[in-house]
C-alpha cells in the first residue's frame, strides 16, 4: 500500500504566454508508514507536487495511484482514496472560519458524514493531540487565539479526519523556536504511534535531518535526489545546486574536519553528532 506517481508532468496556464512547467516527468513511490521529507527552494515544485496526491491539482500528464486506486478516474473508489489523504497547507490558520474552535475542527469530520457522537469524539481527540483543553477552548472563537494556537486548531482540523497519509506543507513556517520543536515532536508522535504516513514539505534541513526516513530534493520541477538521509545528505553538490544547505550539524562537522579534527562528516543526527565530536577530541588528546 503506497502512493505511487508515474511520469507526472504538470504545466501551469497551458496555452498562454505565462505557460510554465512546474513538474517534469516525475515518478516516485511513497511507502506506507514512512516519513518522507520533500525539500527544495521556493518555486522548485514541491507544493505543486503534493497537491497532486489528493487531486487538488490534476496532472497535465501521468498517473497517480493511492493504495492501488487511480485517483484520476471518475469512479467512486477514487473519491474514497482521496479521503485517505489529509493535507495541512502553508499557514493553515488562514483557513479557519467557524464561530467556535470545536465547530471548525468538526468541519472536516462532518463533511465525511459521520455520526454526531463520533464527530465529538474526534474533535476531543484532535484537540487533546494539539494540547488545547477541550472544555476551555471548545466554545471560544478561533480568531481570539494567538498565531501559534490558531495553527494548532487548523492542524487539529485535519488530524480529526484521521488521514492515513498526512501531507504537511511547511508546517513550521513563522512559528517561534519553541512552537516549532513542539509541533515537530507531535508530528513524529503521529508517525510513530498512529502509524500515519507523513509527507513533509520543508526547506529547513535541520527539521528534515531530525525526522525523515526518506529525503526528496527537488530542483526546477525535477527530483534530483530520492534516498535515505544517510545517502541523500552526502550529495553535497546537488544540495547546493538546488539552493539548499546541508544540516547545520553536517556543516559543523565538515568545518571541523577542515580544521584537522578527524570526525565522520556523514552524521546528521544531533545525539550521534555530539558523541562523535567528543570522541574525536578524545582521540586527538590521546595522540
Amino acid at each position: 500500500m503506497s502512493i505511487e506517481v508515474k511520469n507526472l508532468t504538470y504545466t501551469y496556464m497551458k496555452g498562454t504566454p505565462f505557460e510554465r512547467t512546474a513538474l517534469k516527468d516525475i515518478s516516485l513511490t511513497i511507502e506506507e508508514n514512512s516519513f518522507t521529507a520533500i525539500a527544495g527552494h521556493t518555486g522548485s515544485g514541491k507544493s505543486t507536487l503534493v497537491q497532486q496526491f489528493n487531486g487538488l491539482l490534476t496532472p497535465t500528464m501521468g498517473q497517480i495511484f493511492v493504495d492501488g486506486v487511480d485517483i484520476l478516474s471518475k469512479k467512486p473508489e477514487a473519491k474514497l482514496a482521496k479521503c485517505k489523504i489529509g493535507m495541512v497547507f502553508q499557514y493553515p490558520e488562514h483557513q479557519l472560519f467557524e464561530e467556535t474552535i470545536a465547530a471548525d475542527i468538526a468541519f472536516g469530520p462532518r463533511n465525511l458524514g459521520l455520526e454526531e457522537e463520533e464527530i465529538e469524539k474526534r474533535v476531543r481527540d484532535a484537540m487533546a493531540f494539539v494540547q488545547l483543553d477541550y472544555e476551555i477552548y471548545k466554545e471560544r472563537s478561533p480568531f481570539q487565539l494567538s498565531g501559534g494556537q490558531m495553527r494548532r486548531v487548523a492542524i487539529a482540523g485535519v488530524i480529526a479526519l484521521h488521514p492515513k497519509y498526512l501531507i504537511l506543507d511547511e508546517p513550521t513556517a513563522g512559528l517561534d523556536p519553541l512552537g516549532r520543536a513542539d509541533l515537530l515532536k507531535k508530528i513524529a508522535e503521529l508517525h510513530q504511534c498512529e502509524k500515519t504516513t507523513v509527507i513533509m514539505v520543508s526547506h529547513n534541513m535541520d527539521d528534515v535531518a531530525m525526522l525523515a526516513q526518506k529525503v526528496l530534493f527537488m530542483n526546477h520541477g525535477e527530483i534530483i535526489v530520492n534516498d535515505t538521509p544517510q545517502v541523500a545528505f552526502k550529495e553535497t553538490e546537488k544540495i547546493k545546486q538546488s539552493g539548499l544547505e546541508v544540516p547545520q550539524l553536517m556543516a559543523l562537522l565538515q568545518q571541523l574536519r577542515v580544521k584537522g579534527l578527524n570526525v565522520d562528516t556523514s552524521i546528521f543526527k544531533l545525539e550521534t553528532g555530539v558523541d562523535e565530536i567528543i570522541k574525536a577530541i578524545g582521540r586527538k588528546r590521546l595522540c
Binding site: Q51, N54, L56, C83, I85, G86, M87, F89, P92, H94, Q95, F107, G108, N111, L112, G157, V158, L161
Partner: peptide
C-alpha cells in the same frame, strides 16, 4: 488556496 484547503477537508 482557501478553496483547496476546504476541499481537502471534504467540502
Amino acid at each position: 488556496k482557501i478553496m483547496k484547503a476546504q476541499k481537502a477537508r471534504g467540502s
